[in-house]
Amino acid sequence: MTEEIIIAGFGGQGVLSMGKILAYSGIMQNQEVSWMPSYGPEMRGGTANVTVILSDDRISSPVLKKFDTAIILNQQSMDKFVNEVKPGGTLLYDPNGITHHPERKDINIYRIPGAALAAELGNPQTFNMIIMGGFLKVKPIVLLENVKKGLEKSLPERHHKLIPLNIEAIQKGSDSVETVHTL
């Protein structure tokens, strides 16, 4: 199994940390992982993206052009990556702020109202774990117990009290993902 994922949105949405938690979850199930961020001027307030690869085998390139899954969290990222999902691949997006919805018919498309659900939970910082929940619902590549271990590993100890809230957010995301189009 190899899953090549791009997660793209605004800086501050938790894109990089979601990728990190996903990568740690992969390590918890003995997979090879890579996490390649955009860095530099982009991360200082603009768009942010990270390429995450989980694989049972040695990972070749950490830098990719085409992806099995794209997780898209703003319009700029949609414009940049909608055509970079491999045919048969998966696109998951938050419709918040999206003006041009994806229309491809050769990929699976799912929608998750992450920003709205985070507001409902009363904590905007749960946004990325809601998205994670939606992703794992449609692509269950890591077990929830390994995500929990991943959270334990990647969050500093003083934030461990927030893990139950994060798990709740993952559950909420998992329950709330909507199918737009499947093959």
């Binding site: 090879e32 890579s34 996490w35 390649m36 860095y39 990972i59 950490p62």
Partner: peptide, 10 residues
């Protein structure tokens, strides 16, 4: 280079 320096792996 910046790729290997900035990326995370196991």
């Amino acid at each position: 280079d910046g790729v290997i320096g900035q990326m995370m792996e196991k």
